[in-house]
Design a protein around this nucleic acid. Structure first.
Lengths: 242, 242
DNA sequence: GGAAAAGCAAGAGCGGTGCTCTCGTTGTTG
DNA sequence: CAACAACGAGAGCACCGCTCTTGCTTTTCC
């Protein structure tokens, strides 16, 4: 499977990687809108037409970058998840949120590619979904571990309306059957809300509004943790910075 | 000021409006990335070069559309604000959130233009800010009215960290001095979180995850209302749909 | 009123883009 | 070794944003 058979196959994977690397460089520098196939080919010293042997269209290149970005942000979240193993659930939640946010701040254009407005004609539905789920799964894991350890409280908020309850019961039963339905609802909402906070920061909506972005994000993430039923550690007065 | 003086001036405003109208049509149909000056000019039966008399560049046209979109979403929010005058604060909050969300669902590409990844080279900083604030101001107004009527409770969440407190105290004192600082903090966070929910729905992140989007949004908006200190109406068991 | 000035539309053109097609070349395989 | 498939490069198409020049019309000023 992973054995590289001939020189041709080896070259192909190398060139493909080089193209993605250069494209990611341009994406980070100029944004998705300014990413140009010809410029990538030029930088790599090859004819632009040759590039189509590797990616059939610009959108396919972008899709590859989208998948990579999803994987990168997912990996950052998973790393934070592993690093906080054994810590208080609320702190783990904040840690994973922090990892998502820090990655987004460090890679604004790649973040915009995946969590901003979808650039191509609503392309790439299926290929990306597995990678896209990784970030969310880390948040879920925090809650699931808390439940396993018996430290998961009830989520805040009013009782669920019937339609919402049925809908999320179906989702929960196939994804996290051990979690109560209201927790699933709060979790999905918190998931979206975390990225609302991140997007506003990365996309500049907080310009001139919020100055201390990092502490503010931690504060909000802590509130979201409480909302899904992760009680804050009673000892600590305030969550430790950084 | 608003008197149209000559035929020339009148023609100019009409042509400008026609350009924006056609551009908005293409934006809604194809998205910002596919919006083409030449196509707009073609559709209007004029030379593409003539269009530059009205908008010095494509980015300027986009900026104009951005301002219009901000105004449209702001108007929708203000309308909901006015329509719920006198209702319970939590219901007003939900109503305004609903208006924002409904507008976004109805105008996904325009929504993406303003709340998605910033398309041009981070352009349009100052011109847009007044229009951009309108949506947020409606949310603020709900809370301010609740405070005025003495029905504003304390926000949920832990005490604010010092840095966040100082930061938002400065913001609050110049914007809504009558609100307590923790309320301002919760409000700003809720503001971003509302758009997180909307963005996930509009940008397709909820595909295959949440089915009953409308009720789910209402449920989440209600939780956010509680978070900023707007107690739900005790009488109603569940918020009335639509 | 008539001349000067300013605004406007249209065309040609420049450099850039995504993408296709063709044509030699080269590595792979029966 | 020969047939074949993959590959790189070049030319070219249609489109793009944008500029410049050329005439024409409206406004402005003496």
């Amino acid at each position: 499977m992973s054995v590289i058979r001939g020189a041709r196959e080896r070259a192909r994977t190398e060139v493909t990687a080089a193209i993605k690397e250069e494209a990611r460089r341009q994406l980070a520098a100029e944004g998705a809108a300014r990413l140009s196939l010809r410029a990538v080919a030029r930088e790599l010293g090859m004819a632009s037409s040759a590039l189509y042997r590797y990616f059939p269209s610009r959108d396919d290149l972008l899709t590859a970058l989208i998948i990579d970005a999803y994987d990168a942000v997912g990996a950052a979240a998973e790393e934070a998840l592993a690093a906080t193993e054994g810590a208080a659930p609320a702190d783990r939640w904040i840690g994973v949120c922090r990892a998502l946010r820090d990655w987004a701040v460090d890679h604004p254009h790649e973040y915009g590619l995946v969590y901003g407005s979808p650039v191509p004609g609503y392309a790439a539905p299926q290929d990306t979904v597995a990678s896209a789920a990784r970030g969310a799964l880390s948040l879920i894991a925090v809650v699931r571990d808390a439940r396993r350890d018996g430290v998961l409280g009830p989520p805040q908020g009013r009782p669920l309306a019937g339609e919402v309850r049925d809908d999320l019961a179906a989702l929960g039963s196939e994804l996290v059957p051990e979690l109560p339905v209201p927790t699933v609802a709060a979790l999905v909402a918190a998931w979206a809300q975390v990225f609302g906070l991140v997007s506003f920061e990365v996309f500049g909506q907080f310009n001139g509004v919020v100055g201390a972005r990092g502490p503010f994000f931690d504060q909000s993430a802590a509130a979201l943790a409480a909302q899904v039923g992760l009680a804050p550690a009673d000892g600590a007065a305030v969550l430790p910075a950084k």
